[in-house]
Each structure stands twice: as structure tokens, then as C-alpha cells.
Design a protein around this nucleic acid. Structure first.
Length: 577
RNA sequence: GGGCGCGUAGCAUAGCCUGGAUAAUGCACCGGCCUCCUAAGCCGGGGACCGCGGGUUCGAAUCCUGCCGCGCCCGCCA
């Protein structure tokens, strides 16, 4: 994980050596990379592809390069050759210097990038319904990406496209009117939508009222808008409750409901018309994008305006693109939306480009993710087949975490129990999601995510808490350790230093691939490295004072990487647990 | 039928973009380690034709291709 820094430092000497041997930089540059096996080296260069060029064996070539390098890397890396591999292993001196720089830096050597304005589309619950597990991944992954990108200096604009518009709102408003005597808090979102739907299906008078209400809503009838607003607000109270429990950044400022774009929709139609892209099909206005066919092999349309005059979400997505390009001035859009919508986004992006809504300077990226499955291997649902409420799920996580704490650390002060249980329970749920490769489905398993062992949030949080405990016991400020001189005499100290140094690179890797799990994988490796260090390298009872302060500095560094890294994933770390 | 994705020890995963050395990690399993900073831990061990077959390459879990299995998507819900 330290290859980026090492390669950078090795490069000058390599430039000279390779010039001497007569191999152009662009030929060898890509070969110099992190070792695939930490036991061999930190950085390695396989010389096999050079064999054709130089008409020598890889073994001879690696030896030649080693000779050409001479002692130019003295103090930086040890060089060795095995079977045509040129191996570089960081010296303790180099590791010491680098880890000192990281630990001494407020940002742990995480750099800033040239700021971009990035819009992230995530969460997107529906008004008049409870948030459910189906919203978990989008919310958690989107939030992590938002935090990581913001940390790199970008302007991140979260857009929460709540479903707050469309034909169902006629029936929802009428249903709401029937409840009008109720206080806002008494509306039960778990049954509200279903109740409205059921009434709509069985009661023709209600259905008629609903249809009339839709017309009023679309014409912005004032009384109707007031009712609509109330209904939305009730839902917002619920969303914000869940967001607070989840600990995500979304606020009302990020709301970008469908209603917001509603007025732009007709102009989307006009612009597509002007571009000559619009076709009529079965009464609907559609665009036939190149290359898409339906089940029967006929051209597959993107429906812009339905036969009944209404719009659907493709049109809204196109309106959003126009808004982002022309109003917000963003150049990068991330859509954290389930993988099942891949085709939809491919079509929307293609149409948007064809219509000139965005050009090649704009990166519109669908960031897809797989499903959350139950232990039966099917889409996670309650006994009755309904989606599980996110709030209920999180509360259960907290309950389970609390039970685990009471069992394992009964000494934890009562006053901290609830807060710590929230950090652990919610962290466990989020980490379970963020630590697996996005595009895969994963099985939601309480025992696994809260097991406190393995690649779980509690394991990482525990590593952090242990470090805090060391400082507490020594009655030392964490800051006091920061400027200590570090020495790496034990192999586990060196492994730990390598792990600490790798933070910035792991973060960049996660960001570049929009894959929070890469950061999670790194953090787990760091925590494991720390656990081994902790076992073999006594800190407070170290053999001498210099070792003690050096180890305290390493501990502080690990704790800060864990806190910062988990923080970027949206996960809090307790100081004791 | 077409498209997209996934397939790695008993289980769960990383590695695949950008090809390299004995395929990494966790759970479970086996064996060790607490008069010593939280054993929620550590150390060691067994366990994998990387779905199957072809191809490219000095070299393939990784790239290409054909199968197989699973999931999802394929016009007026969003």
C-alpha cells in the first residue's frame, strides 16, 4: 500500500539507471509497481517484457539494472533480484521518514485535488412512505462518496430526488384530507400509501376525487398546494429522523424533488423536438435511441411524454442534466442508483449527449450497486413480504449493539451506553454495506456484521478504542505524542508504519473507482496490523522512554487514520466501548 | 429471445480496471497464548482444478471468446 510514495522516490535513480541500460522511460515506467507479494518487496519490476527488446534473459536484465542502480538508493530501499524480478524493499529509515511526515500532518498526507463541482444523486425516498432497506445502499454509499470527495477539496452537491410528484399524489392528498383532523405526528407512513391505494381501488367516489385532485395539483391550485406541502413536510420529518439516526450529510437544502423540475419538463420536450429527435409512438412522445431494442427486436423508446400527457422519470432526469450543466455549472454527475437501472441511465445519457444537453467535458456516471438480500437469498423483506423500515432496522441494530456491550463490557458508564451503542450498531450496518464491492448483492446478516470479529465496524472501532484507552491510562493528551521522534525497530512496527503511510493512496483509490469498500479494506488491514503490533510491542511499558514515545506516536497516528477513514465512510468511532 | 451484472476454500469476501513470483483476508475448524496497556485480541495449522472449455501471452483469477449457473432489466411506475 505504500507503492505510490516509494515509486515516486525510486523513480529518479531508476531514470538514470534505465537510461544507462538503454530502455526508454515509457517502456519501463508502467512495469514499476507495487509488489504482488509483500513477503518479497514493497515495490517490484518484472523484467520479462524487456527480454525481447534487449535480447537477454529477464534474470540478466534485472541483475544489470541492479548493478546500474549501484548504491543510488542507499538509505531508501534495499534492492534484490529473483527470477527476473527487480525488488525494492523500503529501509527502516525511509519508513521512519515517511510515517513521521504522515503522522505529523493534520491531513495525514491526504492531498487536495483541483476542485470540481460534483453533483451526487442519492437516497431518493418517496413522500408518503417510510424509508425502507431499499434506500439503505444508495444513502450510505452516496454519503460516503460525498464525504470522500469533499475531503479532497471538491464542491459536492448532494441531490436527494425525493418522489414528491406525479399522479399518485391526487389520491394521497385526498386520503390525507380524510385524516385531516389528525395531528401531523399521528400519520402513520407505514400504512398511509397502502391505505390510499386500497381506497382508490375499491371506492369509485374516492377515485374520482383523486383524479380531480391531480388536475388541481398540476394547475397549482392554491389550496391543493397547501395540502401537498403539508404531506411533503410530514415525510421530511420522517426522512430527517432517519438521516440523523444514520448520520448522513443530507439536509433539506439537498432536496431536489421531482416537483422542482416539473416546470422544466415541457422545455425538455421542446428542445428534443427542436433537435428533431422526438417521435410519436402509441400516443406518447418518445426518443428512439440508437441501438436499443425491446423483447420483440423492435426499436426501444425512451418515453418523454406519456400518452396521457404526463411525464415520467426519463424526462425528469434529462431536466436535471440541463439544470446541472446550465445552472449549477457542474462537470461531474454521480448517480448512486441500483444496478437494475443501468439501461435507463445509458439511454438517458445517450439522449442527453445527442440532444446537446451535455458534451464530452461532462462526466455523467452511473454508480450502480447490488441488492440487499435476506438470509434466504432473496431480496430482503419482512415476514409479510413487505420492505423493512429503515428506522426499525437501525433501532434493532442499536438494541443489538447495546446488548453486546452490556455483555462484554459491563463497566461502560451508563451515560455513554446509548451513544456508543448507536455508533456501533449503526456503524455495523453501514460498514457491512460499504465493505463489500458495490456491484455485488450481499446478504444482510446481523450476526456477521455485529460479530465484533473480522472485517466489521466493531473490530475497527475496537482498535481505535484500545488506543484511546492507552492514552487514558497514561493520562496523556493524544496531541502530546505527535511530535515524537519515531523509530521502527520491531518488524511489527515497520508493518504498522507501512499501513499508516498507505492511507492517502487507499483513499484516492477508493475515490477514483467510486468504491468505498477499497477504503474499508485498507482500514481493516490497518486495524489488523495494529492488533499485531499491540500484542508484540508494549507501549506504556516499553523498554525505554524513546521507544515509549515513538510507539505512542504510532498509536496516535493509527487512531487518527481510523477516525478519519471511518469518518469518511460516515462511521463514528467511540473512545471506549 | 436480447442486454447488463455476478460466479474465487464449508461459508462470506478482497484481488480483475492497469496480466507477473507460493491466489490474500475474515468466519467456521484444529493447536497454542491472559500474575503484563480491553482475550471484543494475538500466534501457528489444515482447507481453493479462481464456474467450465478454447484463445492471446514468456506468463492469465485478471485480457478476448464460447458455453453453464444465478440475479436483474427489456414502452407509457419511479
Amino acid at each position: 500500500m505504500i507503492m505510490r510514495d516509494m515509486i515516486e522516490d525510486i523513480r529518479p535513480a531508476m531514470l538514470a539507471a534505465m537510461a544507462e541500460i538503454g530502455i526508454a522511460e515509457d517502456v519501463w515506467s508502467g512495469l514499476l509497481a507495487g509488489s504482488t507479494d509483500a513477503a518479497h518487496a514493497d515495490v517490484a519490476m518484472p523484467c520479462h517484457t524487456l527480454a525481447q527488446v534487449l535480447r537477454k534473459t529477464p534474470v540478466a536484465i534485472s541483475d544489470d539494472i541492479e548493478n546500474a542502480l549501484g548504491d543510488s538508493l542507499a538509505g531508501l530501499a534495499y534492492i534484490s533480484t529473483v527470477n527476473g524480478f527487480l525488488n525494492f524493499t523500503a529501509t527502516p529509515g525511509w519508513l521512519t521518514e515517511r510515517v513521521t511526515a504522515v503522522v505529523g500532518d493534520e491531513r495525514l498526507n491526504v492531498g487536495f485535488e483541483e476542485p470540481r463541482t460534483i453533483v451526487i444523486d442519492y437516497s431518493s425516498p418517496n413522500v408518503a412512505k417510510r424509508m425502507h432497506v431499499g434506500h439503505l445502499r444508495s444513502t450510505v454509499i452516496g454519503d460516503a462518496l460525498a464525504r470522500m470527495l469533499a475531503h479532497k477539496g471538491h464542491e459536492v452537491i448532494g441531490e436527494n430526488h425525493i418522489g414528491d410528484w406525479g399522479t399518485p399524489f391526487g389520491m394521497l392528498i385526498e386520503h390525507y384530507l380524510d385524516f385531516e383532523e389528525l395531528e401531523v405526528d399521528d400519520i402513520d407512513l407505514s400504512s398511509f400509501y397502502k391505505g390510499a391505494r386500497a381506497k382508490f381501488d375499491r371506492d369509485s367516489e374516492f377515485a374520482e376525487r383523486s383524479r380531480n385532485r391531480v388536475v388541481k395539483l398540476q394547475s397549482r391550485d392554491q389550496d391543493t398546494m397547501i395540502l401537498w406541502r403539508k404531506l411533503v413536510n410530514i415525510s421530511l420529518v420522517h426522512f430527517n429522523e432517519v438521516y440523523e439516526l444514520l448520520g448522513v450529510l443530507l439536509t433539506d437544502d439537498d432536496l431536489a424533488g421531482e416537483s422542482k423540475y416539473e416546470e422544466l419538463l415541457s422545455s425538455v420536450v421542446d428542445r428534443l423536438e427542436e433537435a428533431g429527435m422526438l417521435d410519436e409512438s402509441d400516443g406518447a412522445a418518445v426518443v428512439f435511441a440508437e441501438g436499443w431494442v425491446n423483447r420483440e427486436g423492435e426499436p426501444l423508446p425512451l418515453i418523454i411524454k406519456k400518452a396521457d400527457g404526463g411525464f415520467n422519470y426519463a424526462t425528469t432526469d434529462l431536466a436535471c442534466i440541463i439544470d446541472r450543466v446550465e445552472v449549477i455549472g457542474s462537470t461531474e454527475f454521480l448517480y448512486v442508483v441500483g444496478a437494475e437501472q443501468a439501461q435507463h441511465f445509458a439511454m438517458v445519457f445517450e439522449v442527453a449527449r445527442e440532444a446537446g444537453f451535455m458534451d464530452d467535458s461532462i462526466a455523467a456516471i452511473h454508480v450502480p450497486f447490488g441488492m440487499v438480500l435476506g438470509t434466504d437469498g432473496k431480496k430482503l423483506a419482512s415476514r409479510g413480504g413487505q420492505a423493512i423500515s429503515l428506522k426499525d432496522l437501525l433501532e434493532e441494530a442499536i438494541r443489538r449493539a447495546e446488548a453486546a456491550i452490556l455483555e462484554k463490557n459491563p463497566e461502560l458508564p451508563e451515560s455513554e451506553l446509548r451513544t456508543v451503542a448507536e455508533m456501533i450498531g449503526v456503524g455495523a450496518v453501514k460498514y457491512a454495506d460499504l465493505s463489500t464491492e458495490r456491484t455485488k448483492n450481499y446478504v444482510f446478516d446481523w450476526n456477521r456484521m455485529l460479530s465484533f470479529e473480522g472485517n466489521t465496524a466493531p473490530y475497527l472501532q475496537y482498535a481505535h478504542a484500545r488506543i484511546c484507552s492507552i492514552f487514558r491510562r497514561a493520562n496523556l493528551d493524544r496531541e502530546s505524542a505527535r511530535n515524537a521522534s519515531i523509530s521502527l525497530n520491531h518488524p511489527n512496527e515497520r508493518s504498522l508504519a507501512r499501513a499508516i503511510i498507505g492511507f492517502a493512496e487507499a483513499l484516492d483509490d477508493a475515490i477514483d473507482s467510486h468504491s468505498p469498500h477499497r477504503l474499508a479494506t485498507y482500514l481493516h488491514g490497518l486495524a489488523q496490523s495494529f492488533a499485531s503490533f499491540y500484542e508484540s510491542c508494549p507501549v506504556l511499558i516499553a523498554e525505554d522512554e524513546a521507544t515509549r514515545v515513538s510507539r505512542l506516536a504510532l498509536c496516535d497516528g493509527v487512531a487518527r487514520v481510523l477516525e478519519n477513514g471511518l469518518g469518511l465512510l460516515g462511521i463514528d468511532v467511540p473512545e471506549r466501548m
